[in-house]
Computed example of a mutant assay.
Amino acid sequence: MENRVTEQTSAYDNLQDMSVRDILTGINREDSLVPGAVAKVIPTMEQLVERIVERMKNGGRMFYIGAGTSGRLGVTDASELPPTYGVPFDLVIGLIAGGDGALRKAVERAEDDPEGAWRDLEPFRPTAQDVLIGIAASGTTPYVVGGLREARRHGLLTGAITCNPASPVAAEAEYALEAVVGPEFVTGSTRMKAGTAQKLMLNMISTSVMIKLGRVEGNRMVNMQITNAKLVGRGTRMIAEAAGIGEEQARELLLRWGSVKEALGHIGK
């Protein structure tokens, strides 16, 4: 692991002796390097997204697999898509080594099982029409390496999100997104820059896929689920602005039809 960028020694030392201002400034300085590293993977990400959209338009699903921070980020991204874009909860599925209990508490050695990811995927009956994205900051996690290898053997489209160059995880994926953000502020703490880079890449992939699947109109989340007062208010404003009507009428239409898209489709009918 000594040659892995994510494990290299921080450019900062004696952190315990730094002032709070200097700690915060240092972290922020390191964070500013992340968008540039992510920008370099856009050409590969573009190809991956286009192929994901093609498969999902034909009934395919997308799975994320990861361990620790990487797994939590995948589960978070997947869980936010149904309320945001009104898609079925099982269209994009996030799996973490050790199961859902690992979202809150680390499960010992779960990430070291190369057969664990496919075992976790099997209840969903993956097919060659599906997509698997493996997420691993180090690019060495056996859970992710094994999952990608088996998925590819079964004909799934595979992608990888990593923060080390030329990693085993990248070698197993058809499309490897390698955002090399450099050593962490706290040596080896990949929940920091690497985690931020992974979050940005997941945002980019899932958002662009949702847009291309028709879940956005203009710049609005017209299919979002209206599950709380904030979202009812947001949906009301969307309808009022788009249709040129008052907010009271817009709210009534939203609550009657259940989504911005449905409400706008029934105006004037």
Rank of each mutant, 00 (worst) to 15 (best):
R51I: 05
A179M: 08
G147M: 01
E7T: 10
T236Q: 10
A117C: 02
N223T: 07
G146N: 09
G101E: 10
Y12Q: 05
N219L: 12
G235C: 02
P168F: 00
A106K: 06
N203M: 05
G182H: 10
R215I: 00
V216S: 09
T207M: 12
S32I: 11
L73V: 01
A263G: 06
G68V: 03
V209T: 11
E178F: 00
Q249H: 14
E50Q: 15
A67E: 01
R4P: 03
G139Y: 00
I239W: 00
H266C: 13
L231V: 08
T127L: 09
M210C: 11
Y85S: 11
P142R: 02
G214V: 12
P168T: 03
E46P: 06
T9A: 13
V181Q: 04
R55I: 04
A97S: 08
E184K: 06
G99S: 09
R104D: 09
E54L: 13
A11S: 15
M204E: 04
G86K: 06
K261I: 04
P83W: 03
A106S: 10
E115H: 15
I211L: 11
M1T: 15
G26A: 09
G155I: 08
V38P: 07
L103P: 09
A160Y: 00
R152A: 10
G147L: 05
D130R: 05
I52N: 03
S138H: 00
N219A: 11
D31E: 12
D112A: 15
G116N: 07
I161W: 02
L121N: 07
E80F: 02
L121M: 11
D22E: 14
E54R: 13
E217A: 15
A110C: 09
G182T: 07
